[in-house]
Simulated assay, not measured.
Amino acid sequence: MQYKRLGHSDLEISRIGFGCMSLKAGNADTQQLLQQAVEAGINFFDTADLYEKGLNEERVGEALRPFRNMIILATKVGNQWREDGSGWDWNPRKEYILAAVDKSLARLKTDYIDLYQLHGGTIEDRADETIEAFEILKDQGKIRYYGISSIRPNVIRTYLQKSHITSVMMQYSLLDRRPEEEMLNLLKESGVGVLVRGTVAGGLLIDKEPVNYLQHSAETVKKAAAAMREVSTNGRHPVQSSICYALMHQAVTSAVVGIRTREQLEEALATIESPSLNEDEFRHLQSVVPLIRYQEHR
């Protein structure tokens, strides 16, 4: 496994992170799967209090408890489930964050969270209040670092200007090149680590039937998948090529891959052993899929 420091923190995280959202209830192999990931060198595990109304945190916390001193545990806050369970509401308020962290700590069976992330964000939020909550939690020792999960340029800029965020998690793939327009370079210059998700575009870059995706037509999606197959040589599967694409930019610290089976774990791990994309392959992929501009939240 390869490791890279996350932003200005002292967290050395695996280039392949384990996205725990895909882990489902009733899967008896979850504990074994997470253990195998640790044994293979993955040390970054990402969940959220939103997933399965906290049950995901419970499952991850129980499975990883024997390895707590070997791993970097990340979770998210900001989406508050309604009491009737009918859905959730956005809540980045200080009081909510300070209360929610204790529930996450209990579910994760730990007394500290390595990376606590705001699970979204809007420009209308009282960012100063949210940042104050994170800073309080750092002072209390309940979290080591904090970041945000957002692709919105105006939200990211706000936190870069006002806070000490360590990381930004964002969707990034050949079919979603929006971060390339400005944010990746800005975050690199700011010394903030980037965690990318959605690197296979929900399977559209691998084997799913082409459909319209973001501002791309199904025909463009089809061409993107074909191009990904074209560059998948020397034993590199399109899964690995897709992840390699997202890891190419120097701003990117880790690709957080959604994993729920042993096969998916092995496919993700094989990225590290696979040859990286060369410059010609990278440019060829970019030539097939146009760069789209994030229209809102500028």
Score class of each variant (00 low, 15 high):
residue 73 L to H: 12
residue 102 D to V: 15
residue 289 V to H: 04
residue 110 T to E: 05
residue 59 R to I: 07
residue 127 A to Y: 01
residue 9 S to P: 11
residue 123 I to V: 12
residue 20 C to G: 09
residue 199 T to Y: 05
residue 132 E to G: 09
residue 180 E to S: 02
residue 295 Q to I: 02
residue 56 N to Q: 08
residue 205 L to K: 08
residue 106 A to N: 14
residue 114 D to L: 03
residue 88 W to M: 01
residue 160 L to V: 13
residue 135 E to V: 07
residue 281 E to Y: 04
residue 296 E to D: 15
residue 84 D to L: 06
residue 256 V to T: 15
residue 275 P to N: 11
residue 64 L to A: 11
residue 116 Y to S: 14
residue 150 S to I: 07
residue 14 S to V: 12
residue 259 I to P: 00
residue 53 K to W: 01
residue 166 T to A: 13
residue 253 T to G: 08
residue 207 D to A: 12
residue 167 S to C: 14
residue 82 R to I: 08
residue 55 L to F: 09
residue 110 T to I: 10
residue 247 L to T: 13
residue 131 I to A: 05
residue 211 V to D: 05
residue 115 L to A: 04
residue 289 V to T: 07
residue 187 L to Q: 09
residue 110 T to Q: 07
residue 278 N to C: 13
residue 111 D to H: 10
residue 256 V to P: 04
residue 290 P to I: 03
residue 205 L to F: 08
residue 155 V to S: 11
residue 160 L to T: 13
residue 246 A to I: 04
residue 61 G to E: 13
residue 241 S to M: 08
residue 161 Q to I: 07
residue 146 Y to V: 13
residue 213 Y to P: 15
residue 20 C to D: 09
residue 215 Q to C: 07
residue 102 D to G: 15
residue 290 P to A: 09
residue 155 V to H: 11
residue 254 S to Q: 12
residue 13 I to E: 00
residue 173 S to M: 14
